[in-house]
């Protein structure tokens, strides 16, 4: 039982991190129908801005988080304006490929400009405390990550569901020509989407850096792809789906090795099993858990 609770918390932690990143994928897809392949690297940039805030500027945790979210958000909006916006009339594929290129550019550019030494946050950014509750040891880091992720998701959900801008975001994915008629600029909605999505990824990046304290320019590659798959499994374009998909991925990744050991599945099998399960989910429900199939008119 203790073991289960322990693993449950681990899964929740990892799942929240995936969810935070998956949200950005899902929001951008919902608005632009674009798979923003650069999103994983934006997550990485968020983590690196955290290094800038916490070490170079010597800020404590919360200001570092906010600074990184702001800087990353601005970076996301800039990328959209410079690289994606000129292609809005072009075929969807060219934008996707551009996104792939932007991602590679970010990670390799950063590697070239900063060198290959791994980074990490200072020890006192979040001082780890471990509480012991009836045999279950809980670190404050896990609690912070889970609670913060939940808060951020709740905030985003409120924005998307309750505000005029959120409504415009949802509307644009149905009919991008109607939104300007409602007195909302399409460009502004898209910029806002990128701002929100990328700053959430930045939060994910910082929390990731706190939980798994080795940062390098390629850290976004694997995590990004996985979060992307989580978003798709949830039904890309739907933010609840992204959250559920992220959590699901977290649970698969933690519980498969935790309980698979007895049947010979070691922790290195995590990736193949997780991806295999996701593949099965996609084959059974091709549009993801929350996705709605669009019938093609004949």
């Amino acid at each position: 039982m203790e073991f289960f609770v322990q693993q449950f918390l681990n899964a929740l932690q990892l799942g929240s991190l995936y969810a935070l990143i998956a949200l950005g994928y899902s929001m951008v897809y919902g608005v632009l129908l674009l798979i923003n392949f650069a999103h994983g690297d934006i997550f990485m940039m968020g983590a690196f801005f955290g290094v800038f805030g916490s070490i170079t500027l010597g800020l404590p945790f919360v200001p570092t988080l906010l600074l990184s979210m702001i800087l990353t958000g601005l970076l996301g909006v800039t990328i959209e304006r410079v690289a994606y916006k000129p292609l809005r009339q072009a075929s969807r594929l060219s934008v996707v490929i551009t996104a792939l290129g932007v991602g590679l550019l970010l990670e390799n550019g950063l590697l070239a400009l900063t060198g290959a030494n791994p980074r990490s946050y200072p020890q006192d950014l979040v001082t780890t405390k471990v509480y012991d509750l009836g045999g279950v040891s809980i670190s404050n880091v896990k609690i912070i990550i889970i609670v913060l992720a939940a808060l951020l998701f709740a905030g985003l959900y409120t924005i998307v569901q309750r505000t005029k801008w959120g409504m415009a975001m949802r509307a644009i994915s149905y009919d991008k020509f109607a939104v300007p008629l409602m007195g909302v600029s399409q460009d502004q909605v898209i910029s806002l989407t990128f701002l929100l999505g990328t700053s959430l990824a930045a939060a994910g990046g910082i929390l990731w850096g706190v939980a798994f304290p080795v940062l390098n320019p390629y850290m976004g590659l694997r995590v990004g792809w996985k979060a992307f798959i989580a978003a798709v499994v949830g039904g890309i374009g739907d933010i609840r789906g992204a959250a559920v998909g992220g959590l699901l991925l977290g649970f698969i990744e933690i519980f498969v090795p935790a309980y698979g050991k007895s049947i010979g599945i070691s922790s290195t099998w995590r990736d193949p099993v997780a991806f295999g399960l996701l593949l099965i989910i996609l084959v059974v429900r091709p549009t993801g858990l929350f996705g709605v199939a669009r019938r093609q008119k004949v």
Partner: peptide
């Protein structure tokens, strides 16, 4: 060598 340009802003623990 480009690595010196941004390295001061993103220092590694040994820098």
């Amino acid at each position: 060598d480009f690595s010196g340009i941004l390295a001061p802003f993103f220092p590694s623990p040994t820098d």
